[in-house]
Structure formats: C-alpha cells, structure tokens
Amino acid sequence: MLRLTTALALLAATPAFADEIWVTNEKDNTISVIDADTLEVTRTLETGERPRGITFSHDYSRVYICASDSDAVQVMDPVSGEILHDLPSGEDPEQFVLHPDDRRLYIANEDDAITTVVDTETRRVVAQIDVGIEPEGMAVSPDGKIVVTTSETTNMAHWIDTETETIFANTLVDSRPRHAEFVKDGAELWVSAEIGGTVTVFDTATQTEKARIRFAIKGVHEDLIQPVGFELTPDGKTAFVALGPANHVAVVNAETWEVEEYLLVGRRVWHMAFDGDHSRLFTTNGISGDVTVIDVARREAIKTVKVGRFPWGAAYRPTGG
C-alpha cells in the first residue's frame, strides 16, 4: 500500500520515536490518537461529521479526513490538531486515496455514484468520474497510472486511467466490495467483498481474476464472515483481512491464497494499519468501540485500546525526527 511504502522510506531516513496510530470515530466526530509504544490514547481531536477515511500527506505534515456527513474532506495539522481548511469533495465522501504525486486526492462519493478528483494544492475539483452505486474502496497503483474505485451495490471494480481520468475497464467482483489495494509493487489488485465473503485477486496488467480467497471459521456462520479492510506485510507474503461481524482477522498466505490462521479481535472489525516497523497491527472494531493491537510476528492480539464510538479508519504517523 502506498502510504506504507512511503512510511517505510521515511523511516529508513529518520528513526521514529513515539509513533502514532490515528483512528477516526465515525459516530463521535473525533479522531483518537494512539501512542504506538505505550498503546494509550494520548489525544482526542474534533473533526467534522461522521469521519471515516483518513490518510496522511507523504511528508506527514497534513492529514486528510473524509467528514462524510459534512460533505467535505478536511485538512488537519497533525501537530496542533487544528483543521486548516476543507477541500471540495463532492457529496458524502467515504474513502479516498492520495496519488503518488502527493497532490491529487481520489475520493469515493458514496451517495452520488461518483469518484471526485481534487487537487489538494489548488483546492479545486479536477475531474468527476461516473462510477457504480455506492463507491467505497479506493486504490492507486504505485506508479500512479491506475486508480480503482469499487462500488458496493454495482459490485464492480472500476479501473481509472489517471492520465485521462476516465474508466478503461470494469471488472465484476462478489457482492458488496468494500476495500481495494494494489499489492506486490502493483502487480496485483486485491478487492474484498463483504456480502460475497471473499477477496478477489486481480492481475493488474490484464485486469483478470487470478484467485479468490475464501474464509471459514468454526462456529461462525459463513454469512457472518464479511471481509472488509486488509493489509499486506511489506514483503507481500502475508495478508491480514478484517472479517467484520465474524470478529476475527484472517492471516492469509499471500502467495498460496490459503488462510493460515484466524485471530479473535473486537466486534465488527473494519479497517487496520501497521505501525512503522510493521511489528504491530491496529484494527478498528466498530461495535465494541475499540482497537485491537496484534503482534504481527506472534500473530496474537496483545491489547485492546478503548477509543470513541464506531472506530472506522486507521492510519500510521511517525513522529520522530
């Protein structure tokens, strides 16, 4: 994932001190900032209404927040916690992705079946692209040439050429796609389908399906296994997939597509973020209103951190330097 690779590059240059995990609380209109070492909430910051997607600029000087019910993307100074300004975002922005040019923000407008492209410097809308119903998942290829929007009710991944800002391919996925990521240096696109209960792996070059990952947990009805957010380790070998109301995170071998383990976390696990050295993974648990901290090497939940109501997105911020 883009922000992680960037984070790694940055870490290599400047060793981190007390890094942070930022979590948006959808039903509290706040962000909980978790100290990645002490695993305590150190700050709670006010945002607009219904904050969901969250991502940092490449130098971490700004944080972008989808304030869905305020119909705005907010730009915050992560040091002071102050909102600097709003970006025009189209209606009901849910999730977004920052282009490798560190300028263009691709925003899914859930209520409008549109992907909006905003220039974060001029603060202008550059393009609006018609996509399927309830766009949500947003991904950008590491070379910046392709952006993918997934639409929840249309059940498709829409492949957008970022030079022309037009769709060049549409691929069907299982019901209710939620999250998309380019992985393995952009060679593959992964898309989770919440109601379908699968993750589809596409070959980026041909936009054809390579594999479909399925999940089964003993004692949990298959209908309740609903994949949403996921992250891969930087070596591209292991994936962690949040399974929503199944209250588990699946650990998937990203080369064989086999599920190796299921880790019990909080209720309705949604999105996740690694810390700087990828030793810990933080998952947002919407219904239990907390964050589970997973030890990546031991594949074990080590702590639960109470945050606000309905934590949704998570993003890593290095603070060292």
């Binding site: 037009t166 769709i167 060049f168 391919a169 691929t171 069907l172 054809t208």
Partner: peptide, 9 residues
C-alpha cells in the same frame, strides 16, 4: 464479456 469478467468502458 461477462464470462471473461472484464468489460471495456
């Protein structure tokens, strides 16, 4: 088109 699961714009 549907079987190949890829459709042009």
């Amino acid at each position: 088109a549907a079987l190949s699961l890829t459709l042009g714009a």
